[in-house]
């Protein structure tokens, strides 16, 4: 297989684009996809400070590297979930990556804020992935606003976005369908949220990480087995295999024709937001969901005889 551009031996085959690239031409293709996303959706202006959420995986670290190469003013944010074994490993990858590339990094430790994810799993009666996502999004936004960042960037790729859109569509969730997309403008206490990798698949971001020698955290979260998200991704991988190009067509079609319609519906039904009474994050319920989680976890932890401080315990 030859590179479509320079005819050198190809290293990356992309059936969705009916093409293949050598590693040099693939890097150019990757950069152009990111630039196209930024340009078409006005994601970032030069001079703006960008906070990049870093999990330690291929997508977030690849995004950070690419944005820094495009000379955007980027700072990494890692949320240490406090999960034994898994979280220290992920954090080490993020810290090593930022040190190697001379990139700024801010770390939030959930244990210091009373919400380590193992406690959330133990004391909160709802799917832990849902609560964990809520807590992470809370801290992404809070650090962005408190740190004076104009933009919050996440490494969501095309597979993530299509799986999420599919899940939202299965529920006909007008609220989420009204604002899913590569850019969510800043408003009502929220920083502008962007997804510059939305045009690139997981395979492409994995190739980019490999080609650029990025050491990534690959172990799956010990709490995420059975997540419906993974099943949806499998389903879409089958569709893409039989009809290459289906994912980007579905997502682009939604952005052009679906989202505007749902945005109109949400304007009529969306609840007004006000600052949380405890942390000032925007909420429609007085005290925000994450502060309520914190209160519940603290109460149940205090009432748990297995967690009482005593001889032999810290």
């Amino acid at each position: 297989m030859k590179c479509r551009k320079c005819k050198a031996p190809a290293e990356v085959s992309l059936p969705s684009h009916n093409t293949a690239f050598c590693r040099e031409c693939f890097s150019i293709y990757f950069t152009r996809q990111v630039e196209k996303a930024i340009r078409h959706h006005s994601l970032i202006k030069y001079g703006e400070r960008v906070l990049v959420a870093l999990s330690g995986g291929k997508d977030s670290l690849g995004l950070m590297l690419e944005l820094s190469r495009l000379e955007y003013d980027v700072t990494g944010l890692h949320v240490d979930l406090g999960i034994p074994v898994s979280s220290p490993a992920a954090r080490a990858k993020v810290e090593g990556f930022c040190e190697r590339h001379g990139l700024k990094l801010h770390v939030v430790e959930l244990a210091k804020h009373g919400l380590p994810i193992p406690d959330v799993k133990q004391y909160i009666n709802r799917p832990v992935c849902s609560a964990c996502g809520k807590i992470k999004r809370h801290w992404f936004n809070r650090v962005a606003l408190e740190g004076g960042f104009q933009v919050l960037a996440t490494g969501h790729n095309l597979d993530d976005e299509v799986a999420r859109l599919f899940a939202n569509t299965l529920r006909w969730d007008a609220g989420y369908l009204s604002d899913q997309g590569p850019c969510l403008e800043a408003e009502s206490g929220f920083a502008r949220k962007i997804k510059p990798l939305y045009r690139l698949t997981e395979f492409e971001t994995a190739c980019y990480a490999f080609i650029n020698g990025i050491e990534i955290h690959t172990a799956p979260c010990p709490y995420s087995s059975g997540a419906s998200f993974t099943g949806h991704k499998q389903l879409w991988a089958n569709l893409e295999y039989t009809s290459p190009g289906t994912k980007i067509a579905f997502y682009d079609g939604f952005l052009k024709r679906g989202r505007p319609a749902f945005a109109l519906v949400d304007q009529e039904t969306g609840a007004p937001l006000a600052p949380c009474e405890t942390c000032a994050s925007p909420t429609s319920t007085g005290v925000c969901g994450v502060c309520r989680l914190g209160i519940t976890v603290a109460e149940r932890r205090a009432a748990d005889p297995g967690r009482q401080p005593g001889p032999g315990k810290d």
Binding site: M1, E11, F203, A206, C207, I211, Y241
Partner: peptide, 19 residues
């Protein structure tokens, strides 16, 4: 595995399905 489900690596080289 489907074609784009995994990277296939030999040494420092990525391999395409026809390799």
């Amino acid at each position: 595995l489907r074609v784009n489900d995994a990277l296939v690596i030999r040494g420092e080289e990525l391999l395409t399905p026809d390799c």
